[in-house]
Design a protein around this nucleic acid. Structure first.
Length: 329
DNA sequence: CGTCTTTGACCCGCGC
DNA sequence: GCGCGGGTCAAAGACG
C-alpha cells in the first residue's frame, strides 16, 4: 500500500489553520491536554499539529498546520526547546502518567508506537521514508502489537496489559458531516452508543500501519449540529489523504461519509458546508465559556492576511470557519 | 479483489 | 466483588 507514504507532494493541509486550542489549561491528571498559548502550540505539535499561536508559526508557510508534514521538524524543536515546558509536559503526561509500556521492539515500529505511546517527540524522526515498504498487517501495528510480543494473539495480549492513555485533545466542529477530512486516512474500527446521547461514537484509527493515532467522533447530545472530534496520539508520517491517484478511490481517501466530493473539500470557494470550530473540554464535555480566554485562541489569521472568519479558531460563539487549507487558495 | 464498515462480543478501568 | 461504561477486536458483509 502506498497509503500515507506519499511524501513527495506538498500537503494542502500543511497550512491548515489551527483547529482549536484551549486557553489556560494544562494537562490534566488523565493525560489529556488542553491547549492555550505557546505551550499549547507545542502540545499540538505533539500531534503533528502546529498552531500559529501568537507567532510566526513554525511550519511551512508560517501558518498553522494540520497534520503537517512540514511541521515535524518544528515539532521537535518546539518540544525540545524552551517550550519544552509544554511539549515536555505532554510527553511526560503521556509517558509517565501511567506505567509506560516497554518500548516497541521493532526499529521500524519505534517511530510510530514509540513516538506516540512514549510521548517522546524525539522519536518522530520520520521514518516515513520506509513506510511504503513492507507494511505489516495493519491490525498488528495499529492495535499496539508493537508494544508487546507479537506472537501472542491480541485477546491474550490484552489481558494484563494496561491501556496506555496517550495525550489527546478534542475540538468541536459545527458541521453536517461527522467525520471531517483532515488529510489523513482513517479506518473505522468501532462504534458505540453513547450514554445519554442518541448519537453513537465512532472510533477511527489511522490507516498507516505504523501510525497509532486514533480519533473519536461523536455528536454533541446537546447540539446535534456539533461534532466533537478527539485525537489521540501523534502521526508518525505525513498526511496523505488527498492527492492520491486513481489507485485510491474517493471514498477510501475521503471517506464515503463525506458529503461532498474532494474537489470541494480543499477549495475554499467551493466549500459550502459551514464549519464552526471551537475547543472542547474533555473534562466537562463542553466548550469553554470564557470569551476572554477564547479570544486568545484566535489563530492569527490577520498576520497571514487571511480574511477574518476563515480557518479561524474561534470561541464557541465565534465565526464560521472553512475547512480549507490556506495554501490551496 | 482489496479496502472499508458494521456489529456483537470481549476486555478493562473505575466507581460503588 | 460487582456492575457499568468505554474502548477494542475481528468476522462478516458491503462497496467500488
Amino acid at each position: 500500500m502506498d497509503d500515507n507514504g506519499d511524501q513527495h507532494r506538498s500537503d494542502p493541509f500543511a497550512d491548515f489553520t489551527a483547529i482549536s486550542a484551549w486557553p489556560h489549561l494544562g494537562p490534566d491528571p488523565d493525560g489529556r491536554y488542553f491547549f492555550g498559548g505557546e505551550r499549547d502550540g507545542a502540545a499540538l505539535g505533539e500531534f503533528g499539529w502546529s498552531l500559529p499561536m501568537g507567532g510566526s508559526g513554525g511550519c511551512g508557510g508560517g501558518a498553522g498546520s494540520f497534520g503537517a508534514r512540514d511541521c515535524f521538524g518544528d515539532v521537535d524543536q518546539i518540544i525540545g526547546a524552551g517550550a519544552g515546558a509544554g511539549g515536555g509536559q505532554v510527553s511526560a503526561g503521556a509517558g509517565s502518567s501511567s506505567a509506560p509500556p516497554p518500548p516497541p521492539r521493532g526499529s521500524d515500529a519505534a517511530s510510530a508506537a514509540g513516538g506516540t505511546a512514549g510521548g517522546d517527540a524525539s522519536t518522530s524522526n520520520r521514518s516515513a521514508s520506509s513506510e511504503s515498504s513492507e507494511d505489516p498487517p495493519e491490525r498488528s501495528a495499529a492495535s499496539g502489537e508493537s508494544l508487546l510480543a507479537p506472537e501472542k494473539p491480541n485477546k491474550v495480549r490484552k489481558k494484563g496489559q494496561k491501556r496506555i492513555k496517550q495525550p489527546r485533545f478534542a475540538f468541536m466542529t459545527k458541521s453536517e458531516v461527522d467525520h471531517l477530512e483532515d488529510g489523513y486516512r482513517w479506518r473505522k474500527y468501532g462504534q458505540k452508543a453513547v450514554k445519554n446521547s442518541p448519537y453513537p461514537r465512532s472510533y477511527y484509527r489511522c490507516t498507516n500501519s505504523k501510525c497509532t493515532v486514533k480519533k473519536r467522533v461523536e455528536r454533541s447530545s446537546e447540539d446535534p449540529a456539533i461534532v466533537v472530534t478527539t485525537y489521540e496520539g501523534q502521526h508518525c508520517h505525513h498526511s496523505a489523504g488527498y492527492l492520491r491517484s486513481s489507485t485510491i478511490s474517493h471514498e477510501a481517501t475521503f471517506g464515503r461519509h463525506f458529503a461532498y466530493p474532494p474537489s470541494q473539500i480543499y477549495h475554499p470557494t467551493r466549500l459550502h458546508v459551514p464549519i464552526e470550530t471551537s475547543p472542547y473540554n474533555l473534562n466537562t464535555h463542553r466548550a469553554p465559556t470564557s470569551s476572554g480566554d477564547s479570544q486568545r485562541l484566535l489563530t492569527s489569521s490577520g498576520e497571514r492576511g487571511e480574511p477574518s472568519g476563515v480557518n479561524q479558531l474561534l470561541p464557541t460563539e465565534g465565526l464560521l470557519a472553512d475547512v480549507v487549507p490556506p495554501k490551496m487558495r
